[in-house]
């Protein structure tokens, strides 16, 4: 090796410094998402809590008749959605709205389609007792958990006490916070790798941010503005079928408005919209191309797009670049669906 080469190598070694990835975080945050994962000060993430929450997430004991778990409607293989327009609930009926894909909820400022809960701790408990969801009885659920030796150990390990409602919510919320989707082709492109998107996907991205106006609401690393918009989905036959955000705020301008969902994993989380009324991405693009459904409270941002067929295809191709790696649990363990005794799937 020449002296010049040796000098270059020595210099390169001397100059070698770590990348920002070294800054470390637990659980690891996938590429493309903010390194700052918001976690409430009164419920810090710990491996014990996350492991317990993960077990509870798949636990049918939380439902009224021990037939449903959170994972029944939020299946890892389906981007933590369930592929249904509406989901079977504990009361035998169907849920009022479609089960949303619950990736990256840690970053969300509102939970549920109508945003009636702010904190995940609040959301998980509400789901547990909602008759059309898990329909559980908190007292009964906690009694079952306390009787279970494994859970007794897990709760004491995570919280230093037996199961109670606050600990149950804290554990489930902690686990949900670790369900993260990132490292998609779009993320690599955003970091500067211009080859990460195909030409048609790049054309779709331009449309997404331009003519198709998607980025008006679907922006930032999470591809949502955390806002509520009336796109007309709930307007059928001249009437509003679901008041949406209005039920929370009682503000007329929120009539028929629903939370902007993330578009991460979108190609894996059909059907779409709060009621699952659109089966495919093609239908979604057609819906917005028509300017949504006109109604008295339609969001003023919606208008006819006049997209050409090639543009629609490019847009859908780009949406495919929003699916990446979904991580869940502490240290990104693969989603092995550990079955607890009595676990049944529907």
């Amino acid at each position: 090796m020449s002296r010049k080469a040796i000098a270059a190598a020595a210099l390169a070694a001397a100059c070698a410094v770590g990348s920002p990835k070294e800054w470390g975080h637990a659980p690891p945050v996938p590429r493309g998402l903010d390194l700052h994962l918001p976690v409430p000060a009164d419920n810090p993430l710990t491996p014990e809590k996350v492991a317990l929450g993960r077990r509870l997430f798949f636990e049918p004991l939380l439902s009224r008749d021990s037939t449903l778990s959170c994972a029944s409607c939020h299946q890892p293989a389906l981007g933590f959605g369930d592929g249904r327009a509406r989901s079977p609930g504990a009361d035998g009926g169907l849920t009022q709205r479609s089960a949303p894909a619950i990736v990256n909820r840690a970053y969300g400022t509102h939970q549920f389609w109508d945003g009636r809960a702010d904190a995940l701790e609040e959301q998980v408990l509400a789901t547990l007792i909602q008759p059309r969801e898990l329909g559980g009885d908190t007292t009964q659920v906690l009694r079952s958990l306390r009787r279970n030796a494994a859970y007794r150990r897990a709760f004491r390990g995570a919280f230093g006490r037996d199961a109670d409602a606050a600990a149950l919510a804290a554990a489930l919320a902690s686990y949900v916070r670790t369900i993260l989707s990132g490292d998609a082709p779009f993320d690599r492109y955003a970091e500067g790798d211009t080859t990460a998107l195909t030409p048609i996907q790049r054309a779709g991205l331009r449309l997404f941010r331009g003519k198709a106006r998607c980025a008006t609401c679907h922006l930032g690393s999470r591809l949502t503005d955390d806002g509520f918009h009336n796109t007309g989905v709930a307007w059928r036959g001249g009437a509003l079928r679901d008041s949406g955000r209005f039920t929370v705020t009682r503000s007329v301008r929120d009539l028929g408005a629903f939370k902007t969902p993330t578009l991460r994993e979108i190609s894996r989380t059909a059907p779409y919209m709060h009621d699952g009324s659109l089966a495919t991405l093609e239908e979604v693009v057609e819906f917005y191309d028509r300017g949504g459904i006109d109604n008295p409270h339609l969001d003023p941002e919606l208008r006819q797009l006049h997209l050409r067929d090639t543009e629609k295809r490019a847009l859908i191709a780009f949406l495919g670049a929003l699916s990446g790696a979904v991580r869940e649990g502490w240290y990104a363990a693969p989603p092995a669906l550990a079955r607890t005794p009595g676990h049944r799937t529907r």
Binding site: C15, A16, V17, S19, P20, K21, W23, G32, L33, D34, L35, H36, A190, E191, G192, R209, A215, L219, G220, S221, R222, D225
Partner: peptide, 26 residues
Amino acid sequence: RRPDRSSQLALVSAADGSLRVLKTFD
């Protein structure tokens, strides 16, 4: 500042330019 008008606070490596987003704003 991204083309979708969101803003990000990012750490850029002074050595190789790799970047890690700390926080995304609207």
